[in-house]
Amino acid sequence: MNTIYQQSSFCSTGGCVQVAVLADGSISLRDSKDLSIPAHTYTVEEWVAFTAGVKNGEFDLVPGGLLAS
């Protein structure tokens, strides 16, 4: 089975992260600019916690590239 990666429709540069669900249910995250770098793999629980934080604004950046607090 081939792994099918998706990237955000908001990616306008072509150099974005890509995400796939693996056969065992874990989540694979890779950098589309350099596919020779191994992907990071997360459990479903880790992924759900991360995406919940993103949706809650916990990783929003402010001017200067710092995380909002």
Rank of each mutant, 00 (worst) to 15 (best):
M1C: 08
N2V: 14
T3N: 06
T3Q: 06
T3G: 01
T3W: 00
I4G: 07
Y5L: 14
Y5H: 13
Q6R: 15
Q7Y: 15
Q7E: 10
Q7I: 09
F10S: 14
F10C: 08
C11V: 02
C11G: 05
C11S: 11
S12I: 05
T13E: 13
T13Y: 11
G14T: 06
G14F: 03
G15K: 14
G15T: 14
G15W: 06
C16F: 08
V17I: 12
Q18E: 09
Q18R: 06
Q18N: 05
Q18T: 02
V19M: 10
V19S: 12
A20E: 00
A20I: 01
A20V: 00
V21H: 04
V21D: 01
L22Y: 05
L22T: 06
L22H: 07
A23C: 04
A23L: 02
D24Q: 04
D24W: 06
D24G: 08
D24Y: 03
G25T: 07
G25I: 06
S26L: 02
S26I: 00
I27A: 00
I27S: 00
I27R: 00
S28D: 03
S28Q: 02
L29I: 11
L29T: 01
R30K: 14
R30D: 08
D31S: 08
S32T: 10
S32W: 02
S32F: 09
K33T: 07
D34S: 10
D34K: 11
D34W: 09
S36P: 00
S36T: 04
S36A: 08
I37L: 07
I37H: 05
I37M: 05
P38A: 15
P38Y: 12
P38E: 10
P38D: 12
A39S: 13
A39F: 01
A39R: 06
A39I: 01
H40N: 15
H40T: 11
H40W: 09
H40S: 12
T41D: 00
Y42A: 13
T43R: 09
T43W: 03
T43N: 06
T43D: 03
V44Q: 14
E45P: 03
E45M: 10
E45N: 15
E45Y: 06
E45T: 14
E46G: 09
E46D: 07
E46C: 04
W47H: 04
V48N: 15
V48P: 05
A49L: 07
A49C: 05
A49E: 07
T51P: 04
T51I: 10
T51N: 15
A52F: 04
A52D: 08
A52P: 04
K55V: 02
K55N: 07
N56R: 14
N56I: 04
N56S: 15
G57M: 10
G57S: 09
G57Q: 12
G57L: 08
E58S: 14
E58I: 01
D60L: 02
L61F: 10
V62T: 08
V62M: 10
P63R: 08
P63F: 09
G64L: 04
G64N: 03
L66H: 12
L66N: 13
A68T: 11
A68L: 11
